[in-house]
Write a protein that binds this DNA or RNA. Structure first.
Lengths: 239, 239
DNA sequence: CCGTATTTGTCCGTATGTATG
DNA sequence: ACATACATACGGACAAATACG
């Protein structure tokens, strides 16, 4: 029998998780985030299966995983739909993101090395440079790297993963067209406050700076446009 | 064609998600949290299928979802294992939980009604009563209700769900036997600080009280026992 | 080190439920 | 309102990989 001979796997073999389902999960995720299908649109199982030249089984499993992750929504007997993020849900997500990023900042403040601090300052300078030219295509990736670096320096993988998931879900909203464009300088000023809090290793101040930075992003979203009108489905599964 | 005729589903029909897979997901989750299978142990797909008198398809889908949720771990060609939470992972989870609960407290402080405040005080009194008798079986559910109430009063479903998931994952660790038993009075004293911060609607103070309360729980865990020895798997999939 | 048994991975067929004309 | 077409849900079977003797 198996009993105790079956033990938990090491963390390493998760990386080369080369099952067909996990590959599909990644691919479908890419499709979703690429915006090929708009929010609310339906994904056809068979179409996906033929597209990747596989059977529907792995596709279903991959979709089930993505549903749990909040990227798609599964309706019994109707199929899988790209998750629609309403404005209020986006606002909720921003609060969660603020909680996680703020805490990442707090932990980072307690653990950051001088080298890491210097690296962050480099990113600040680079953002200042491109912000001056109002180049959002240049600014965005550096901004992303800044946030990811902070999350990394917190040395808490669980926290970082939760943060990434949160950001990913918000991409579904951003894809709707409501991109928080403006505010380079003000954004980078907030970044600077975070780094300064790191420099003096002030945990609470770092938290608050990170928390408020995300909250500012939320406010920009909420102020822009009217957001998606809550278009009612023609008919949910009535039973 | 489908085009726009297919719109996103309303939030309501998620509740009666009566597909076989989602039922299995709930059932298997119950099995895991009940401790019927210890952490690291393997779940046999066919055994689960016959147990619930269903095919392996829905079982596999349910397990995929649980894997994404972090309750089980899927290893290609080897199967599904109950997730093993090491002490360091538990510590990381506590930081995340602290972030979420602290933020829930912060939001609650901004939105709590007098009635809700009164309800919390009732829970405090009840916990004091059972703490006096050192009755952990009585204390635990009230303690749980207190935390859930606070999470609810924050009026942020996304946050609450993330918090619940976090707590659920920590149950996998608690199930190992390292229950944070002691400290009734000190715990309820922290509860009282949270409620007092609510009473004066101090957001930052509420956050810090909630954050530190969870952190205290973390410290109790870390201090207890040596934690699970990292028993190495006999052989990972070598390829 | 090799053969066998068991388990997982994948695919396909049928039934049921939903949307459309 | 009814019938038709189509997509999903589930079950079962075959192939591949792994574990054990």
């Amino acid at each position: 029998m198996y009993e105790q001979s079956q033990t938990a796997p090491s963390d390493l073999d998760l990386l080369k998780n080369s099952s067909l389902t996990s590959i599909l999960q990644t691919e479908i995720e890419k499709i979703i985030l690429s915006g090929e299908f708009g929010p609310g649109e339906r994904l056809n199982e068979k179409a996906l299966a033929t597209r990747f030249s596989v059977s529907r089984g792995p596709v279903r499993e991959a979709c089930r995983a993505l549903a749990e992750r909040g990227l798609v929504k599964l309706i019994p007997n109707r199929g899988v739909f790209i998750r629609e993020i309403t404005k209020s849900e986006a606002a909720e997500l921003y609060d969660v993101r603020a909680a996680l990023f703020g805490t990442a900042c707090r932990l980072t403040a307690e653990r950051i090395t001088d080298q890491e601090l210097a690296d962050l300052r480099v990113l600040l300078a680079r953002m200042d440079a491109v912000a001056y030219r109002r180049d959002i295509d240049e600014y965005y990736p550096i901004n992303l790297e800044f946030h990811n670096s902070v999350a990394k320096y917190a040395r808490n993988n669980t926290l970082m993963q939760a943060y990434r998931e949160c950001v990913e879900k918000l991409h579904l909203f951003r894809a709707r067209g409501l991109i928080h464009g403006g505010g380079f300088e003000v954004s980078n000023k907030e970044h600077r406050q975070i780094v300064e809090a790191f420099a003096v290793r002030d945990a609470l101040k770092s938290f608050e700076a990170g928390y408020q930075h995300v909250q500012e992003g939320k406010i920009r979203i909420l102020m822009s446009g009217e957001g998606p009108r809550a278009k009612q489905p023609p008919a949910g599964p009535r039973n």
